[in-house]
Computed example of a mutant assay.
Amino acid sequence: MRRLRDHGLALVFGGLLLMALVGQALWGLAGVNGDARDKGLQTIGLGEYLTSSSFAVDIAENWQSEYLQFLLFILLTVWFVQKGSPESKPLDKTGRESDEDQKVGRWAQPDSPRWAVVDGWRRSVYSHSLGLTMLVIFVGSWSAQFIAGHASHNSELIRDLKAPEGWGQYALDPDFWSRTLQNWQSEFLAVATMVVFSIYLRERGSPESKPVGEPHGSTGVEG
Rank of each mutant, 00 (worst) to 15 (best):
V191G: 03
I147H: 11
K39W: 03
V118G: 12
Q182N: 13
Q42Y: 01
G105H: 11
M194L: 14
W107L: 10
S98P: 06
G14K: 04
M1N: 06
M134F: 15
E203D: 05
A192H: 02
L4V: 11
H128Q: 12
S88G: 07
S209I: 08
E87R: 13
Q182L: 14
A25S: 15
P110C: 06
Q185F: 13
S127R: 12
T219I: 00
E61T: 15
K103E: 06
Q169K: 05
Y200M: 00
S54C: 00
I158Q: 13
L75N: 12
G213I: 01
Q185I: 10
Y200Q: 02
D111L: 02
W27R: 13
G223D: 13
D101V: 08
Q42F: 00
Y126A: 08
F55Q: 03
R96I: 14
R204D: 10
L16G: 06
L26M: 12
Q42H: 08
R114L: 02
Q145I: 04
R123S: 12
R5C: 01
A108G: 05
L21A: 13
V139H: 04
R204Y: 03
T180V: 07
G47T: 03
Q69G: 15
E165Q: 14
S209G: 08
G45I: 05
D119I: 04
G31D: 12
G8A: 09
Y49W: 01
D173P: 10
S129T: 08
P110V: 01
G8M: 03
V212R: 13
S209H: 03
K39E: 09
G131D: 11
A60E: 03
G28S: 00
T77P: 04
V196M: 13
G217D: 09
L189A: 12
K162I: 04
S54I: 02
D111I: 01
S85M: 05
R123H: 12
G217S: 10
V22D: 10
L68R: 07
K210F: 02
D160G: 01
D160P: 03
G45L: 11
R96A: 07
L26H: 15
Q24P: 00
G8H: 05
V196H: 05
V136Q: 11
S218L: 10
L16E: 02
P211E: 01
V195Y: 11
G223C: 02
H153A: 14
S218W: 07
